[in-house]
C-alpha cells in the first residue's frame, strides 16, 4: 500500500513496517544522485532518533539501507483531523522540546503530526536539520502557523494555545515567537 509519493520519496506499508524510499532523479548525474539520497537517508534516520532522545515521540527506526528507511508504522490519525486547543498546546510543548534538542523539523504541518495511542508523534524528518538559531526556529513555527491558518477556521485560538505550550519549558520561547511575527511581516512564502 502506497501512502504518499512526494517530490522526493515514496512511502509504503508492508506488514506494519513503513518503508520510505528516496527515488532516483534522472536529471541528476547518477553519482551525485546516489550520494545525495544516501546522505539524506542517513541524516533523516539520525534526526528521527535524536528527536526521540530529546523527548519527542517519533517512529522507531528498524533498518537503513542505501536510500531506504524501514521504521515503525503509526496507525493513528493525522492531527489536522482532530486538532483542538488542548492538542495544540501539547504540540507547542513538543516543538519546544525538539528545538531544545537543536533540531529544526523543516516541514511542520498538521499532516506531519500523528495522534497514536493518546500521544502526539512527529513524522517526516526529510527536510530536518540541526540548528539552534532563532531564525530557523522561527521559520519552523511560522510554517506550522500557516497550516493552521489555511486549514483551520479557529486558527487564532490554536496559535494562542500553541504559544502557551511552547513557552512552558523553553527559555528562548519568547525570542522565537517574537521572530515569528517578524517573519510573517516579510511575507515570504516558506
Amino acid at each position: 500500500m502506497y501512502l504518499t509519493s512526494g517530490a522526493e520519496a515514496t512511502v509504503k506499508v508492508e506488514d506494519d513496517v513503513l518503508i520510505k524510499e528516496r527515488v532516483p532523479k534522472n536529471y541528476r548525474l547518477k553519482e551525485l544522485d546516489e550520494r545525495i539520497r544516501k546522505e539524506r537517508t542517513k541524516a533523516e534516520a539520525r534526526l528521527i532518533s535524536e528527536a526521540r532522545r530529546g523527548g519527542v515521540p517519533t517512529p522507531v527506526i528498524y533498518d537503513i539501507e542505501n536510500s531506504t528507511i524501514k521504521m515503525q508504522y503509526l496507525d493513528g490519525i493525522a492531527i489536522k483531523y482532530v486538532i483542538n486547543e488542548e492538542l495544540s498546546e501539547q504540540i507547542g510543548f513538543l516543538v519546544a522540546e525538539l528545538h531544545k534538542a537543536e533540531i529544526i523539523h523543516g516541514d511542520l504541518t498538521t499532516s506531519n503530526l500523528i495522534l497514536f495511542k493518546d500521544r502526539i508523534y512527529m513524522i517526516d524528518f526529510g527536510l530536518s536539520f540541526f540548528d539552534s538559531s532563532t531564525e530557523a526556529r522561527g521559520v519552523d513555527v511560522h510554517v506550522l502557523f500557516q497550516t493552521f491558518e489555511s486549514t483551520h477556521h479557529d486558527h487564532e485560538k490554536l496559535i494562542e494555545a500553541f504559544c502557551r505550550g511552547y513557552r512552558k519549558d523553553f527559555n528562548k520561547a519568547d525570542e522565537v515567537l517574537e521572530r515569528v511575527k517578524e517573519i510573517e511581516k516579510r511575507g515570504r512564502y516558506a
Partner: peptide
C-alpha cells in the same frame, strides 16, 4: 554545472509538487 543545476532543478520540482 552538474551540482548547481541539480540544486535548482530539485527546488523547482519541490515547488511543482507543493
Amino acid at each position: 554545472q552538474e551540482t548547481a543545476f541539480a540544486m535548482v532543478v530539485e527546488v523547482t520540482e519541490r515547488a511543482l509538487a507543493h
